[in-house]
């Protein structure tokens, strides 16, 4: 059983500007949730709050296993991970980048090696294992960040536009990793995307954010087939919604 995330009355402002308002939702355990909406709708902020990088104000975030609240400590931080929009790789080889999180979780060198190699293989990056991170292309770096998350086998993974700069092959690869995480380890995933087609391909649940408010949520394909709100309908059919 993986972790599920609950946001209650979450709001957030930056310098007087209200970015999120009255968010109430739950990302179900073991499922892939897509967080969609136009640019500037607060998706990234919501994700970062879920990742505990930002503090909600007002409101709260809680992490649950079934009905039990998970204490917010290092254990929780090590059960989840974030793939950010412009991922940062450390000043070392790709191998060490993937291994970093595994090592600090105290896994043995052999286990680390197996997991890193497995993950690199799954991400099609094996041949770059000992290349220095700065020699990777933008696309390779982005894939590397997803591979890094995959290797951790997290209970919760949060991804912010993970395929924004990838070619179709890369997109397929990353979406494949996402599915594998869900199928192999029951990982709960929240994926921010502004690509409706991607949301249709991968998600179990969809959350539509507009102007900092959660407009509508539903399962896939119901959400796309029968949007309840006019705003939602216009967004998913590709009308310009501004």
């Amino acid at each position: 059983m993986s972790i599920s995330v609950e946001l209650k009355g979450v709001g957030r402002s930056f310098g007087g500007r209200e970015v999120l308002k009255g968010i109430n939702c739950a990302f179900p355990e073991g499922k892939i949730s897509a967080l969609i909406g136009p640019n500037g709708s607060g998706k990234t902020t919501m994700l970062r709050i879920a990742a505990r990088l930002e503090v909600p104000g007002p409101g709260s975030v809680s992490y649950l296993k079934g009905r039990e609240t998970v204490p917010e400590d290092t254990g929780l931080m090590r059960s989840m991970t974030l793939v950010s929009q412009e991922p940062l790789l450390f000043n070392t080889t790709l191998y060490n980048n993937i291994a970093y999180g595994l090592r600090l979780r105290g896994l043995t060198a052999n286990t680390v090696k197996d997991r890193v190699e497995e993950a690199l293989e799954a991400g099609g990056l094996s041949r770059l294992a000992h290349a220095h991170a700065r020699t990777l292309s933008g696309g390779e770096a982005q894939r590397a960040a997803v591979v890094r998350a995959y290797a951790l086998r997290p209970e919760l993974v949060l991804m912010d536009e993970p395929t924004a700069n990838l070619d179709p092959e890369g997109v397929a690869l990353v979406e494949g990793l996402l599915r594998r995480m869900k199928e192999e380890h029951g990982t709960t995933a929240v994926v921010v995307t502004h690509n409706i087609f991607q949301a249709k391909r991968v998600s179990d649940q969809v959350f539509f954010l507009y102007g900092g408010e959660l407009v509508e949520t539903g399962d896939n394909p119901g959400f796309f087939a029968n949007p309840q709100m006019e705003l939602t309908r216009r967004f998913v059919t590709g009308e310009v919604v501004y």
Partner: peptide
């Protein structure tokens, strides 16, 4: 050092 390093480390489980 890039300030993003700290955040990245944290999201990978660093204390």
């Amino acid at each position: 050092v890039d300030p993003a390093v700290r955040e990245t480390a944290v999201t990978l489980g660093a204390t």
